[in-house]
Design a binder for these strands. Structure first.
Lengths: 344, 344
DNA sequence: ACAAGGAATGTAAGCGCTTACATTATCTCT
DNA sequence: AGAGATAATGTAAGCGCTTACATTCCTTGT
């Protein structure tokens, strides 16, 4: 297999197409990338050759030569549930409209894994990166900056951040919900949250609850906190733990809808009536919030808009130095039946 | 910016590392790819240079030179719901164990988009591809074969397929469920399914229902069929349509759990008692099946095992010609409360 | 009819890496 | 101690593409 394989069976290259069409490789390249810089007759000849040979350009070679991939990477904490799905979908759609491809990786909420993914995406030549949340090792941003890869942090809003953020105020959003909860007479509050370590969304939300409590004169220590990984089952397990404590909460505020739905399911399993015996709240307002029974009181996040704005911001930054876009989106309380007045 | 920029500011390359460490580029490359082929002293020198310079290899250049990316692509119909999440997670984990990266794309259940994604993934240099379902334009498989990219079709089992399949018998699984349904006295059956056009999983499942009906002496025409896209809301809309028909079904068999959960929610909204007034079944047994109220009777699919086996099959095939693995996994009936005896 | 200018195409130098092959250093055995 | 084998490293030829620059071809104006 050395002499006979002049041309046979190998997947066709740009050069093959050029030879077949009787033009130079430069012309073929131009046909594919800026068709208007080539006269129609030639173009047809080339396109015919492309078809005939079943030619497919080698992306890696192209990226190497052009130093641009038209690809943007996104690293989300998880694909296992729908929290990021809608936002990412919108993100992708907006990129698509600009001829840019999306590369997704998921970090399983692990900092080190995320850093690895960042390196991977960068070395794959991503023209830009979407990250969830802002707080992370400054070295990460340094690295990205050195590599000249623009970043947008989404799902958070931070006017002081070094990179553009597109998101909402997690602290305020949760605080508003907590105020509502407290105004309904609840005093024994518990929360089920994702690990707050290295997760600014989670920790900001937690802060929101505490702030509302403080303002209402409820000691911060009264808040029972359970940290757990995201997941329906995990929400159930956490709730069970909460309900075996000395002082049982009258309301459980969950860090997201997935945990909340799990908590409700478990509560019912334990013979509790939601919301008569126990109120439950969520965060995000994803689809399951509506179909949960009882339907979930939660914070509505404009996922689609966030995804779209993030894409725009990123697209603007490609090839640019820096960029200071900060976009603050509004969240709204979505009151449904899982939260009720508390009466002792 | 022409004379001064000998070295400044550019992101470091292999050659920079080599120069810095005082060795050849080949040695640096070997340090990174097969460390044992290089003596420790040299290796340390090189690794130090790598660290010092903050060197990150250029993936595209590597792929171009090595003709191998250690990357496997997967194209799933949707990321919007959890149907594929668990399987894909397991797939990814197994790949990870082999130092292979996963690239995911989603086709939104559109054939043409899927074909585009296949081309993209191939031209990105994927060493192999995971596809959902087997039935598609033969040209696709021809293309893949010509490019020398191995494929595995998952979520289906087809002993006659030209490519390895790792999955279960959609027909039989649904037929068993339908038999159970019929044995409970149901005669007026309806189904909410994904578009069967170009979707072998959906059409096989539909065939399963019809086969069970025929065997039980129920005319096939009695089956009300609604095709819709996957989604909770869509399931609800479909159910509403079903319940305004002349003859109302006593059971709605849904093509998957997402549709089923949506149907249940809508049924309750319409004042129907599930399962007393209407039974509902799903398919997949994903998390929401359990927490639905009432909990969903469905077909349990061993998603994790499927993902893992698919990864193994694919890994085995990389660099090989063909491969004939066929793996049939068992599904089981997961009986819960959304399905009840029918009494007129 | 011819020069000037622009449009279309060609030439060839990389992009940053891997790897076959050549070279040099090191070890083993008699 | 020296030959021969083996290990470590170096040299340099690509991988398949893009693009600056050179060349050729066609307009257009006078």
């Amino acid at each position: 297999m050395n002499i006979g394989d002049t041309n046979k069976d190998r997947t066709p290259t740009l050069a093959d197409v050029a030879r077949f069409a009787g033009v130079s490789t430069a012309t073929v390249s131009r046909c594919l990338n800026s068709p208007d810089r080539v006269i129609e007759e030639t173009r047809n000849k080339v396109l015919k050759a492309v078809r005939e040979l079943g030619y497919a350009p080698n992306f890696n070679a192209r990226a190497l030569a052009a130093k641009r991939t038209n690809t943007i990477g996104a690293i989300i904490p998880t694909m296992e549930n729908a929290i990021f799905a809608r936002g990412l979908q919108a993100f992708q759609e907006e990129l698509g409209r600009n001829g840019t491809t999306l590369l997704v990786a998921s970090s399983s909420y692990q900092t080190d894994l995320e850093e690895e993914q960042i390196r991977t995406l960068v070395s794959r030549g991503a023209d830009g990166l979407l990250l969830i949340g802002y707080r992370r090792d400054p070295k990460v941003y340094e690295f990205l900056h050195r590599q000249g890869v623009p970043v947008v942090a989404a799902w958070v809003f931070d006017p002081d951040a070094d990179v553009p953020t597109v998101g909402f105020d997690n602290f305020l959003a949760m605080k508003m919900l907590a105020e509502k909860v407290i105004s309904l007479g609840h005093r024994r509050i518990a929360t089920i949250t994702a690990a707050t370590q290295g997760n600014d969304r989670a920790s900001e939300r937690l802060r929101g609850i505490l702030a509302a409590m403080t303002e209402a004169g409820i000691p911060e220590n009264d808040l029972s906190i359970i940290e757990t990984t995201y997941g329906i089952d995990e929400g159930g397990v956490a709730l069970e733990k909460l309900m075996t404590q000395q002082i049982r909460p009258s309301v459980v505020m969950c860090g997201n809808d997935v945990l909340a739905v799990g908590a409700i399911a478990k509560a019912k399993e334990l013979g509790l009536n939601v919301p008569a015996d126990l109120s439950v709240t969520g965060f995000d307002d994803i689809e399951i919030a509506k179909i949960s029974s009882p339907p979930l009181t939660t914070v509505h996040v404009p996922h689609r808009r966030m995804g779209k704005e993030a894409a725009r911001a990123l697209l603007n930054m490609v090839g640019t130095t820096g960029g200071r876009t900060k976009i603050l989106l509004e969240t709204t309380l979505q009151i449904r039946e899982s939260l009720a007045q508390h009466t002792d």
